[in-house]
Amino acid sequence: MDDLRIVERDVDAKETKISAKNVQVYYGDNHAIKDVNVEIADKTVTAFIGPSGCGKSTFLRCINRMNDTIDVCRVEGDIAIDGEDIYDRKVDPVQLRAKVGMVFQKPNPFPKSIYDNIAYGPRIHGLAKNKADLDNIVEQSLRRGAIWDEVKDRLHEPGTGLSGGQQQRLCIARAVATEPEVLLMDEPCSALDPIATAQVEELIDELRQNYSVVIVTHSMQQAARVSQKTAFFHLGYLVEYGETGTIFTNPEDPRTESYITGRIG
């Protein structure tokens, strides 16, 4: 992987945002996540890589308790955000999800206008004081989602009328509009062209100033470009977790090396 330029990284000083201990996830009898321990740092971009079906999305969905919506899914172990167990009885998953935003693997805009798609979260959580404030939030979010220029003249047309890549950026804008502390992104760029991808990566880098970002990606280059930490999953296990530079240049585990050099996948 000589073609990867690994930039200078500063990760040591960051404190832990999310910490997972002995996490197990079952879909019925299918043991999808096995014994995962990971500490995700604040103000950092963490990449999850691994072959298809290894459990990246599943683990990501544990962090904002989206797995609660799947009947057959069972989560064991501890996951804490800022030291607070999110699977505790006292925790309201609705509040949690407002704090931990998510961009899904497949774009899923609401059947509403572009404006209403973005305004949905701020309206629910009462983030805007008045109409002008809301307008401003919508514009800022669309700009951060790198889609403002394309939609600024058609804000009141349905979001479902956009192209696949535009829809995905709309969903990213929708997720940032609620100002989450953690942003989980499940392959956010899989439907995007290189220009939009570059814009989204820029956004991710910018978000890192304030938030913790976890991104699932199938592109090693992308993982190398945007992330400071990388976790490699394989068959439900977290095989290796460390600084992105180390993982890509000097992996400890042979499986990691095979994967990033393209031998398993």
Binding site: M66, V94, R97, A98, M102, F104, P109, F110, Y120
Partner: peptide, 15 residues
């Protein structure tokens, strides 16, 4: 109505 719509809304923190 596709589940992904519900996921989208729940994921933003809607009840």
């Amino acid at each position: 109505v596709p589940q992904s719509m519900r996921d989208g809304s729940l994921g933003i923190g809607a009840t």
